[in-house]
């Protein structure tokens, strides 16, 4: 583990320690939705898994309550690392607002290109509305519509690579269902998301490009099995656009284990395969995300 990675891990642990303390004051019964129904925090801030959002809204507020989360996540692959911190607030299990601050470190790419900048920062502001259904209690899956506005603050390398814009908005439509006793009497989580986007590598490499400059419909799926109500094991797939002729972009995969010890803390560890990322091939590695819910 590099020094920088260790530092980030320590930051994550400290942040969530503070969060945990702040939330202990709350009684367990202040937020009523069942354990794990708030999902984890994705790297774009919306509730879901790690790389794919779901129709669930963050936190544990039922329809007469509110809830929120704060989180820190880290992705480490051979030539890149991505750190994310963010927060969300959900109202009456109807509306979720979220923000995520992303920082991509790309020292090897800088060396290759001979530029001084070694990181790209981006802010993602998201809103998600539950349109219909309930994750658990209705035959219809829970269905939510989301929007993610993204602003890239370090557009030098993205523009050199052929990206057209330094900001953009993704639209997402998600359907998520928890099938109680769905497989071998274990609870089965199924999610499908359609994304309408022209973001390159989340927007970290800008929006649109020389090869294609209009938004596309992209498919994302995730599935998992609850070993018991505290442990979820699953995987995700996220289709990616390929807008730049200079650097190609691959679809993403993850395999994750999520731990929900109680309604205040959750931890996700994953193996991620990001394929080729801006000239570097075989970018697979690990992902860690810690969330505090209040």
């Amino acid at each position: 583990m590099s020094k920088a990675t260790a530092l980030i891990l320590i930051k994550i642990i400290l942040l969530n320690g503070v969060l945990a303390l702040a939330t202990v004051a709350h009684s367990e019964q202040d937020r009523s939705r069942l354990l794990a129904t708030g999902g984890a925090s994705t790297i774009e801030g919306s509730a879901g898994g790690g790389i794919v959002p779901m129709a669930v809204l963050s936190g544990y507020g039922a329809r007469e309550e509110q809830g929120g989360t704060a989180f820190a996540s880290h992705v480490q692959v051979p030539h890149y690392s991505l750190s994310v911190v963010g927060a969300s607030w959900s109202w009456r299990n109807r509306l979720e607002l979220s923000v995520a601050e992303q920082r991509l470190s790309h020292r090897p790419l800088s060396q290759l290109l001979g530029v001084n900048d070694t990181s790209i920062r981006q802010t993602v502001v998201g809103a998600k509305v539950r349109l219909a259904g309930d994750l658990i209690y209705t035959p219809l899956p829970q269905i939510s519509l989301g929007a993610q506005y993204k602003k890239n603050y370090d557009f030098l390398i993205p523009s050199a690579a052929g990206a057209r814009d330094d900001s953009g908005t993704d639209l997402t439509l998600s359907a998520t269902k928890l099938l109680l006793a769905g497989v071998a009497d274990r609870n089965l989580l199924l999610n499908g998301t359609l994304r309408y986007s022209k973001a390159n590598q989340l927007g970290l490499v800008g929006f649109g490009g020389d090869k294609n400059n209009s938004p596309e419909l992209l498919a994302e799926v995730s599935a998992g099995v609850f070993f018991n109500r505290h442990w979820l094991i699953g995987g995700e797939y996220r289709q990616k656009p390929d807008n730049l002729s200079f650097i190609s972009e691959d679809d993403w995969y993850s395999a994750f284990v999520a731990w929900f010890p109680n309604r205040h803390i959750s931890l996700v560890a994953a193996y991620v395969d990001l394929g080729e990322v801006a000239t570097f091939r075989n970018q697979h590695g690990w992902y860690l995300s810690l969330q505090g819910a209040f």
Binding site: I136, Y137, P139, L180, A181, A184, D185, R186, N187, F227, N228, R229
Partner: peptide, 13 residues
Amino acid sequence: VATQNRLLALLAP
């Protein structure tokens, strides 16, 4: 866990 899930599956609807 399996028994819990089966009972919940009957009651949730």
